[in-house]
Write a protein that binds this DNA or RNA. Sequence first.
DNA 1: TGAAGGATTTGT
DNA 2: CAAATCCTTCAC
Length: 205
Amino acid sequence: MKSIASQQSVQPAWLARLSTEVAPDLIGCTLVRRLPDGQIIRGLIVETEAYAPDDPACHAYRKRTARNAAMFGRSGTIYVYLIYGMYHCLNIVTDKEGVGSAVLIRAVQLQSIPPGSEPRQVAKPHRIAAGPGKLCRALQIDLSLNGQDLHPGKSLWLEHRSSQFQQDLNNKAIALVQTTRIGLSAGTEKPWRWYLANSPAVSIF
DNA sequence: TGAAGGATTTGT
DNA sequence: CAAATCCTTCAC
């Protein structure tokens, strides 16, 4: 019998499914960021949104451009974009290569306080990465990661749910909530946002 | 070549 | 509710 590692990294093949299937499955997974200086920041994913090709809210809805090119890459590609001129948003590309779809990571619950966090934020540690813009600020994610691949030990990767998390989910000790997405001007009716019920780290209450 | 607006966050 | 702030997209 092979020994069981507590954390197993997510492989591209596991992400090669519809974004609407992957998005809820990513809740409970751990996002791991390795800074240029080698420091590791880990966060439990507690909120995601799915974006699909036939979805008017999806950046890849109209056509392939320089900006959204990463969304058409193979599953496991990192798609980062700048919003409102000051915040970055992190997406994990899903489905087959050539299909413009991805999952937006909206919030993570940090395992530790990352470097550079302001005292005002540290007062509420669970809110430091509550929201897509704040998440990227805390994990120092910017356009330099756009188009790169998730890769264990490199800049960014994902680890599967712990057996404890999966067990709690099966026992209904914890639950996922599915509802509509946030901040859109189109496709507002699609129930493609998921979050961990009762998590203090989701972007909105 | 220019104007409009955005998968956000924060403070008034 | 409006500002901050800049890149992308689309119209002229």
